[in-house]
Design a protein around this nucleic acid. Structure first.
Lengths: 116, 116
DNA sequence: ATTTTATCGGTAGTTATATACCGTTTATAT
DNA sequence: ATATAAACGGTATATAACTACCGATAAAAT
């Protein structure tokens, strides 16, 4: 449906909150029960669902309370390892690095500083 | 691979952070460039990647900077609407409710208050 | 239509995160 | 092996989220 990349941060938080809310409702749990299970205040849960600001910890607590941690792996899907890379003894990349004469990406192409 | 439901909140934040980090590395972006693009401080990005605490807003900013918002829709997959429900004029559920004599779930079965 | 209660928004005080620095460690191109 | 800069951890101050309340609104069972 909607193209998330075009949405503002305020809208994105609202979308995420609404999804969590629908997940809770689908499990037939009210806010008080869910908040207790998550170990956060009812207000914090309301703010999360309304997209009014929350912490990553609160979000994870709620996902856990709703038995929906599986979605976590999908937030940041691990980039598929190319078959070729597998063959030639691939290590885990721990750091990004450029050739010595290259400058940072930000210097080459001034970052579009999305303040919103 | 790993069963996320067994992990502590500290570990879950670390897993999420590591996934974001690998996503960034896969796109060959350094922390400074990524933080600038996301509109947050480099330290905030480091804390997020290290699982040391962050806000939902910062997480979304980074996901947006990494062009990885698609995973968001998958966090809380909308429960598939049953074909039957579609037929009989289904509205969007806005609230959970029990029958009048029923008590809250928390009262019936004391919530396992997971403080950690 | 009425009643019940889940959901909602606001506030004051507390706690955690964000920012802007610092110097240090370490992966990796050479 | 060495040099370079990406990544890291710590601190002080500013800003935002969390908690514990309050009363108001409105969805849904009757």
């Amino acid at each position: 449906m909607e193209d998330l990349s075009l949405k503002s941060l305020v809208e994105l938080q609202a979308v995420l909150g609404e999804q969590l809310k629908q997940l809770r409702i689908a499990k037939n749990l009210d806010q008080i029960t869910t908040a207790e299970k998550a170990g956060i205040s009812e207000k914090a849960l309301r703010n999360l669902e309304a997209g009014r600001g929350s912490t990553v910890e609160s979000m994870l607590r709620v996902l856990k309370a709703l038995d929906s941690l599986s979605g976590l792996q999908l937030i940041a899907p691990a980039p598929s390892i190319s078959p070729l890379a597998l063959l030639r003894h691939t290590r885990v990349r721990r750091r990004v690095r450029r050739s010595r004469k290259e400058s940072r990406a930000a210097d080459v192409q001034p970052a579009a500083r999305g303040i919103e």
